[in-house]
């Protein structure tokens, strides 16, 4: 067996998918070839180290307790609180929440790009809420133009929602869905709302999947294949 052939078998060997006869061939080559022996040793040692990772990092002791408190009292965690507000108080509360989002209240200083609202979508760098992320310099304060754009989008949407009770229902539904995702994705929804407000019958986003980078869906909607 030549080195080239041996190296092509490395991954199958490490995946545990090499037939016994080929494994023997590879072992024979390994015995007499220092270069392949070394390459394989590096791969094996990496796998061993990763497999035996016992880095002493652990969750805070009260993680479970805090988590269950969130389950029982969602108002302790703002996304859930907001969701409840939406659910019970309807579209006007939703509008208020969205307005707050635009004004940067929920922006943790990670540079949500309100100018997307004004229709600039050349970057798909959707502002995503990153827990605990340090400020990157962009403040959450929007320029007057950006705020005006946000207000305009909001106003259009509210007008539309008020005109049509079906639209209202769908608005709440879609916002409810949006709140499961990220602030950045709300901004997209509102942008769509603004664009479509003149012609559409209802709040866009209610019947279209929310997308990031082309094809992202909410994780909780992801079907998981059956276990073999």
């Amino acid at each position: 067996m030549r080195c080239e052939e041996a190296r092509q078998l490395f991954d199958a060997y490490l995946d545990g998918e090499l037939s016994k006869s080929l494994a023997t061939e590879l072992a024979a080559h390994r015995v007499r070839c220092p270069a392949c022996r070394r390459a394989l040793a590096l791969l094996e040692v990496s796998g061993q180290i990763i497999a035996s990772d016992r880095e002493p990092v652990t969750l805070d002791e009260d993680f479970s307790g805090r988590l269950l408190a969130c389950v029982e009292a969602p108002e302790r965690r703002w996304p859930l609180r907001v969701r409840r507000t939406l659910f019970y108080a309807g579209p006007l509360a939703a509008a208020a929440v969205i307005a707050l989002a635009f004004l940067g209240v929920f922006d943790r200083g990670n540079g949500a790009q309100p100018h997307e609202v004004a229709g600039h979508k050349e970057t798909r760098e959707v502002p995503v809420y990153v827990p605990g992320e340090e400020s990157t310099g962009d403040s959450g304060v929007n320029s007057p133009d950006e705020t005006a754009a946000a207000e305009y989008a909001l106003e259009q949407w509210m007008k539309q929602a008020q005109q049509n009770s079906e639209a209202k229902r769908q608005s709440v539904e879609s916002l409810h869905k949006a709140l499961d995702l990220t602030i950045g994705q709300w901004l997209d929804i509102l942008e769509e709302a603004k664009d479509a407000s003149a012609s559409e019958e209802h709040f866009p986003g209610a019947d279209t999947p929310l997308e990031v980078d082309g094809n992202e869906t909410d994780p909780i909607d992801i079907p998981v294949d059956p276990v073999d």
Binding site: L59, D60, F63, R66, L67, C70, V71, R77, L80, V130, P131, G132, E133, D180, P219, I220, D221, V224, D225, P226, V227
Partner: peptide, 25 residues
């Protein structure tokens, strides 16, 4: 800190949609 927040969010999302989870998996 990020990892802890992500874990919390993952559990909350999972619990919120437990109804759609199939125990076949």
């Amino acid at each position: 800190h990020d990892a802890e927040d992500i874990c919390q969010e993952a559990f909350l999302k999972a619990f919120a949609s437990l109804g759609t989870f199939s125990t076949k998996y």
